[in-house]
Design a protein around this nucleic acid. Structure first.
Lengths: 194, 194
DNA sequence: GTCTATAGGCAGATAGAC
DNA sequence: GTCTATCTGCCTATAGAC
């Protein structure tokens, strides 16, 4: 299994499917929706992704790969921990500004209806986020740019779930500012300088 | 329109539908699922709730009515603000312990696919939660049992979205403790005595 | 208020020609 | 790799008997 879509057509299918899932959820979109938008017959879509489950898994894999790259990029920036957290939150905000939910956040709502491979992918995405945040938190505490009590891991879990929840409600309200407000508070409560 | 289901059958339909939506999402369950579970034909279900949209709206209305009652009950208990917040968080935890998501939390993920009446209902539920929390927060600050900066309303919005997000991820992980951890931190950060 | 029967459409998926 | 054609099954919803 290749790490990225083999062909350009596969990538375009993933682009459309990704947006449809982020906006409507996994159970509300269909091959017919993609077909209509790309001008490609449903049967051709099945040539690239034999089943909806495999398409879903490919979506998660690509999404996570891109996210991993973005997280590594933030680390390479070598800014202080509070700034890294702000940049991290902006990743979420950028998704929301496109009127979308986090792919894995929306799949978490569909979780019980997903095939196992997709469930594993969703959990893996959250784990990636929490591991990255745990490192940033610990580094920030050592550098005295962040302040918090106890282990970093539960704080990381707290941050991920709070940001996902903030996205969920902000999109329903149609107010990105609701998300920004939560993100600002989360980071402000951790930063030593503020 | 009556405030509660007219008949016992209607109530049983709502009971089953509510659980199905909370577990699977609005677009993943069908009249056939309810039919199979209650031993009532699909056509009979339509006699009680003509369309899926009307069934969905009835679900939200009943859920919100019950929640409103529970919130009023907490207020009648006349405990201090931190205790009221803990009891409030336990309402969410009780849902999660039944392996369910908050009805309106899961509908927020389906938001873009919902008919307007259901969207309005979902937003109304969140508004109810935020108004109640705003009152508790302001009262707690006056009584010096809670401490926070700025207006109470954005803190209330923060609490609701963080709890919803915590439910979402805790259910995916199958670990209620992840929710409890977040709830404890949220309230602990607000309480003066701790 | 529940039933049988069915309409009309869309779902995911496959066969096989080109 | 894309197409036409089709399958099978499920979906929401309705008609009308009992």
């Amino acid at each position: 299994m290749p790490p990225s879509p083999r062909t350009d057509t596969a990538a375009r299918i993933l682009d459309v499917a990704e947006r449809l899932v982020q906006v409507q959820g996994f159970n509300a979109f269909s091959y017919a929706d993609i077909s209509a938008e790309l001008g490609i017959r449903k049967a051709s879509l099945h040539h690239h992704f034999a089943t909806k489950a495999k398409l879903g898994k490919a979506l998660i894999t690509r999404y996570q790969d891109r996210f991993r790259d973005a997280l590594a990029e933030i680390r390479r920036g070598a800014s202080d921990a509070p700034t890294q957290l702000k940049t991290y939150a902006r990743l979420y905000g950028n998704v929301l500004r496109k009127q979308r939910m986090c792919l894995c956040g929306v799949l978490a709502a569909d979780f019980e209806t997903l095939p196992r491979a997709m469930r594993d992918g969703v959990l893996s995405f959250f784990a990636l986020n929490e591991e990255w945040l745990t490192n940033v938190l610990e580094e920030g505490r050592r550098a005295k740019t962040l302040r918090f009590e106890g282990s970093a891991a539960p704080i990381a879990a707290f941050l991920v779930s709070s940001l996902e929840g903030a996205m969920l409600l902000a999109r329903s309200y149609g107010r990105v500012s609701r998300f920004e407000s939560v993100a600002k508070k989360l980071i402000g409560d951790l930063a030593m300088v503020s």
